[in-house]
Design a protein around this nucleic acid. Structure first.
Lengths: 224, 224
DNA sequence: AATTTTTGTGAAGAAGTCGTAAGATCAGGC
DNA sequence: GCCTGATCTTACGACTTCTTCACAAAAATT
């Protein structure tokens, strides 16, 4: 049922193994990183990580710095592993968009339960129907409405719109768009995107003219 | 479509009202109980309660005791309402067979979504007859009617129709259909589906022309 | 203002997908 | 074994979508 990827970041190999052993049993795919820099590498190399377990105390780059970096481009659920009762940490985390805290030491059972719960929440609720500006987008049923009226989009147009909306307010280079919306074995012309953007803009009409051009850079989906 | 009974158990009248107002809109029938003892009374007096929303912190008898009592005779779905981050509660609940956790404070939207999801899960399993649009489908007896007239379907056609109906309004890729309707060790041609869809469409006639093709994607069963 | 770079647009060909029909294969009953 | 009906494969035409290309328009640079 799942096959969701979970990234565990901790400098102690023992801790990673503990968590891994438990989560593997629940059919999660576990990726590991031993420090902050490695964590970022792994995260950005895999564009489909569903959840991150992040230790705070780490050499080189601590958990919060990692989180700050990740939050620049992603809303992936993050569980922070912290020493017991460190209130300062907790406050800091909430500002950065932490989803859960777990204090060390913890029982693996609790951890697994939290991971389950968080993923269920994250995957069930905001995946599916998204609404931005005058656009309503229903992912499972593949329907897009502008001001309540259904518009017909081709497969690629739909994928492209979803990608734009899921990365709204972020400037996207053509390269990035190609890598995410097209299969990565596609090495065609980047101008293909222009054509699709053109068609998408036409279909979205003036009522949802949210795809902005960023000259010399790419495109950005922006509502107001 | 629903008329399902939901029991909300909480000692705060304000909380009960909040939840009630929201769920009534979704056509659920709401029963209330202000403490554990009352909850058991109400539950055993009504033998057709579909779901229980259970607060943990209550006078006289807490939520877990209520749950323990109920689980002696019933597998009714239960959602536990708990204070944020109470780990002990969470673990205790899993052992007792809690289906979901929702931490206070929660948004009514989330609550409603969880209730829907849980009931859908619970009810689908033992429901044998499904009716959508002009189609009546009786799963155990393997009979399908269109506008009241029985139509003869082969085994695969029937399975396919069931799968479509159980996933109505959702765009289904051929791969997904293959994996679910065919055995997962089947690696044949995806075009096989086309043939079956064609036959199914022909047998369902114009009166139940609900299988839409989504170009470049797959099929979708849609009634409206 | 002229030049260079980048983006918008329209059209046409390439590539991919769907519906259909016809034939092959398989399984069960006689 | 032979027949029968269901299921699966294959092939082709019709259609949709994707990609490319050429040129126009716009923005930045000189």
């Amino acid at each position: 049922m799942s096959d969701l990827k979970v990234l565990i970041v901790d400098d102690e190999a023992r801790m990673r193994k503990l968590v891994k052993d438990f989560l593997v049993k629940k059919d999660y795919i576990i990726l590991e990183a031993a420090d902050g820099e490695e964590a970022l590498e792994v995260f950005f190399d895999n564009n489909d990580i569903s959840l991150i377990l992040l230790d705070v105390m780490m050499p080189k780059m601590d958990g919060f710095e990692v989180l700050k970096e990740i939050r620049k481009t992603s809303k992936v659920p993050v569980i922070i592993l912290t020493a017991k009762g460190d209130e300062e940490d907790e406050l800091k985390g909430f500002e950065l968009g932490v989803d859960e805290y777990i204090s060390k030491p913890f029982s693996p059972k609790i951890l697994a339960a939290r991971v389950d719960a968080l993923l269920r929440r994250a995957n069930k609720l905001d995946e599916g129907v998204i609404a931005v500006g005058n656009i309503e987008l229903n992912k499972p049923s593949h329907i897009v409405k502008v001001c309540g009226n259904i518009i017909e989009l081709s497969y690629k147009e739909f994928e492209l719109l979803v990608y734009f909306i899921e990365n709204k307010d972020i400037a996207l280079s053509r390269e990035k768009i190609l890598n995410n919306v097209w299969n990565y074995d596609y090495f065609g012309d980047a101008r293909t995107i222009d054509t699709h953007v053109k068609k998408l803009r036409a279909k979205l009409t003036k009522d949802a003219d949210y795809i902005k051009t960023i000259w010399g850079m790419g495109y950005k989906f922006e509502v107001d």
